[in-house]
Design a protein around this nucleic acid. Structure first.
Length: 789
DNA sequence: ATAGCCAATGTG
DNA sequence: ACATTGGCTATG
């Protein structure tokens, strides 16, 4: 090939390289050329076919986030395949990277270096994942290298060789502990529609739940040959539990025909949701395609694992979770990448699992903050899966007992349809739910006071214990001090930007957590009150107290380090923190949801949504009302969020939530970015950023040193903490080693969703400028930040 | 990041 | 005259 010869021609390339230094020191130039010549001799000639490799180099710098070309030496011609891991010399250093593609010639005017080594010919970065990672990096104003670190597990050589169906993927093995470690609380934001090419439901918003027609057949990638059932667009699948939803059978049928239906699914209370997910996965498999299921934690993964085994038979799927060792983890991941298995389930990190010929992505309980990746660039599983479904033409199922505002938005813009059950079906599955305000009953009833439980709650528990296990949900304490109107208890909102008001640790007036302003003339928009009160409740609940109130009844605590997975059907009190509730055999006879206050009082944008989600998740474990299942929630019955629980109506609540956020210009109605770092670094960032004209900046405001920035371990005991001492669930912002750069601050950038792409691009460019200039002090850029506080 | 280059500074 | 250090630039 003439082109190749041209590219590899040393004199021409060398001349280009030496333009700068030529006049200054000819001798040095000559000697460096000599060294390169020796290198070339050592590595031999370049490969005859496609001698140029485009490499994604693993460097952390934003301004180097682009492919670099290298020459493939003859000896690596066969092993340097697209997607493989390589080692290259970059800026004089041996660095790892991924080979994106082999091409005939390079655009680079200078001289190319040779690939140093092919770590392994295993193509671990498929074109689909490479493109997805690029899109995710762009979306979140991050770098490709960061995303690839999340997407591709560390290599374990043993797993690559000891391969094959012989050692074939064992289906299960989720025997890992509770997910530990720090992570962000809160949400993300998901919205492919305004970004990508419009595919899928052309039809306008608001497809009713009964609507039959699902989107067109997939435009997706070519069918991958692979093991598993043949790709006949086969018989109508058994709807099974999906028959309970009017739109369910049509959704399944569309999957089985290889089409790409997308749905937000409000699951009926009860234990059948894993089977429903597995049935949907089986439908995609029956069309000859793969499926990917992402759940919040290891316990849910265990449920999905068993359901998939039932639906697909043994050995047809793998579970990917953090608790596996590196070897096992890589082995299972490889089975997915090689197409040995077509169905993968897992926790958050599995969102990037390279399932071949994807036909369906599923996310369960997308409101759970575990779905928000805590490492840069902080992608959210819902968002990533939606992007994947969008770009590969796969179906999507976003399910849960609750519904997030983001999911509601996907319906609103017509990206997904709703799958809900009819009201009578819902009523038949849900337990009977009653609410009781904390103050009123607590004061009157002496027995209740000693148990620190309103008497209705006490009666509910007692009646339940006669018939089986009773769940007591206890929220964690110690959140930031939100404020509410002293008179009507409406949450305090900033007069200027609408952000949540909160009291600072050191005292002083209520201050907006977003823009930092205080308003001496604050007035409650609801009742006109002018005074605010703190919303922290002091009472901690303990298992011992309950034990005293119910002598002789076994008390089990589940939370934090001791998460109990399941309970027998016999009477017992189960005290659990949200997310750590064990399943009970046959369902709980009753549940008591304590201290609704604390959840509702969090100065979070999503406080109500999150409270409802946690309540619904607990209440879903209780038997139907017809079988005596009862729930008592300690919260004011008049609050809309409490009404939504009582009526089991997450849909209306999510719609109202979304409408409210649209009115107030909160996510997901707008796109938000959080910039955090030391004062001068953030100021420098903002100065370097050329933001889209529609964007506006809130703040920066100082983060007080002991502000709870992250909700570190939500699933910690709380239940066993009598005095409220123990470890707290907040940690201080590191005030930074560099005093010169000032205190930690955070600014928010808000832009309409139509400006999402330019906003992310501008933030990425600002990072690039800063990293090229070597500006001191890191600035963390978070799009759709987990918690707006 | 960091290797490499160059200029300026320090030392014998 | 030479070594050392610090700033600057590009990274294939």
């Amino acid at each position: 090939m003439a082109q190749e010869a041209d590219q590899a021609d040393p004199p021409r390339a060398a001349r280009a390289t030496r333009v700068r230094g030529a006049s200054a020191s000819g001798a040095r130039g000559a000697s460096s050329r000599g060294a390169s010549a020796r290198g070339a001799r050592r590595t031999g000639p370049p490969a005859e076919q496609l001698p140029v490799a485009r490499i994604a180099v693993d460097v952390p710098l934003a301004h180097l986030d682009r492919p670099f070309d290298y020459l493939v030496p003859q000896r690596l011609a066969a092993s340097a395949v697209p997607g493989c891991r390589v080692r290259v010399r970059f800026a004089g250093q041996l660095t790892s990277g991924y080979l994106l593609e082999r091409v005939a010639a390079s655009e680079h005017p200078g001289r190319l270096a040779y690939l140093e080594r092919v770590v392994s010919p295993e193509p671990v970065l498929s074109p689909e994942i490479a493109a997805l990672a690029r899109e995710v990096a762009d979306r979140y104003a991050g770098t490709l290298a960061d995303v690839l670190r999340l997407a591709i597990p560390p290599r374990h050589a043993g797993a690559e060789t000891a391969d094959g169906p012989s050692a074939g993927p064992r289906p299960t093995g989720t025997a890992d502990g509770p997910p530990g470690g720090p992570r962000l609380a809160g949400t993300g934001n998901g919205q492919p529609p305004e970004s990508g090419p419009r595919r899928g439901p052309e039809s306008g918003p608001r497809r009713g739940p009964e609507s039959g027609p699902w989107p067109e057949p997939r435009p997706g990638p070519g069918a991958e040959p692979g093991p598993g059932p043949g790709p006949q667009a086969g018989p109508r699948p058994e709807p099974g539990p999906w028959a309970r939803y009017p739109a369910g059978p049509a959704f399944l049928a569309a999957l089985a025909q290889g089409r790409a239906p997308r749905a937000v699914w409000s699951a009926l209370p009860g234990p059948r949701w894993p089977d429903e997910i597995a049935t949907a996965a089986a439908a995609a498999v029956s069309a000859g395609r793969g499926a990917l299921v992402v759940v919040p934690d290891a316990r849910d993964l265990g449920l999905i694992d068993r359901a998939l085994s039932r639906a697909l038979g043994p050995g047809q799927h793998v579970c990917l979770s953090a608790g596996l060792g590196p070897a096992e983890r890589y082995r299972r991941w490889l089975a997915v990448a090689r197409g040995t298995v077509r169905v993968a389930a897992g926790t958050r990190a599995a969102m990037f699992a390279p399932v071949r010929d994807l036909g369906l992505v599923v996310i369960w309980d997308d409101g759970d903050d575990l779905h928000a990746e805590p490492r840069a660039p902080y992608p959210h599983a819902r968002e990533v899966l939606a992007l994947r479904a969008h770009r590969t033409g796969a179906g999507a199922l976003i399910g849960g007992f609750a519904r997030t505002a983001e999911a509601a938005s996907l319906i609103n813009v017509g990206w997904a349809a709703a799958i809900t059950a009819a009201r009578p079906t819902v009523r038949g599955c849900a337990p009977q739910i009653q609410a009781v305000g904390a103050d009123a009953e607590l004061a009157r009833d002496e027995a209740a006071r000693s148990a620190r439980m309103p008497s209705l709650a006490l009666r509910t528990a007692r009646a339940g214990l006669a018939r089986g296990p009773v769940l007591v949900q206890v929220p964690r304490r110690g959140y930031v001090t939100a404020v509410a109107c002293e008179n009507c208890r409406a949450p305090g909102r900033c007069t200027f930007c609408g952000g949540p008001l909160a009291l600072e640790a050191g005292g002083g007036p209520a201050r907006c957590r977003w823009c930092g302003r205080t308003d001496p003339g604050w007035q409650c928009p609801a009742c006109g009150g002018t005074r605010v009160r703190a919303l922290v409740t002091g009472a901690g609940r303990t298992a011992e107290e309950l034990g005293r109130a119910f002598p002789g009844t076994p008390v089990v605590v589940s939370g934090g380090a001791t998460v109990v997975a399941a309970m027998p059907a016999s009477p017992a009190l189960v005290v659990a923190t949200p997310g750590a509730e064990p399943r009970a055999d046959g369902g709980y006879a009753a549940a008591v949801l304590l201290d609704g206050w604390v959840l509702l009082g969090r100065p979070s944008l999503r406080a109500a949504e999150e409270a409802l989600r946690r309540w619904l998740n607990a209440a879903a474990l209780v038997r139907p009302g017809a079988s005596g299942g009862a729930v008592a929630v300690v919260a004011e019955a008049g609050l809309p969020v409490v009404q939504a629980l009582i009526r089991w109506d997450p849909v209306t609540h999510a719609e109202r939530e979304l409408a409210e956020r649209e009115a107030l210009r909160f996510p997901p109605a707008v796109r938000m970015a959080a910039l955090s770092g030391q004062e001068r670094a953030v100021a420098g960032f903002l100065a370097a950023a050329v933001l889209p004209p529609e964007a506006d900046v809130l703040g920066p405001i100082e983060l007080d040193a002991d502000a709870p920035v992250q909700d570190r371990h939500r699933r910690t005991p709380g239940a066993g903490d009598t005095a409220g001492v123990k470890e707290d669930n907040v940690f201080s912002v590191d005030s930074g080693a560099d005093e010169a750069l000032g205190p930690q601050v955070r600014a928010l950038v808000r832009a309409p969703r139509s400006a999402s792409i330019p906003l992310a691009a501008a933030l990425r460019a600002a990072q690039a400028v800063r990293s090229a200039r070597k500006d001191p002090g890191p600035v963390r850029v978070q799009l759709d930040p987990a918690e707006l506080i």
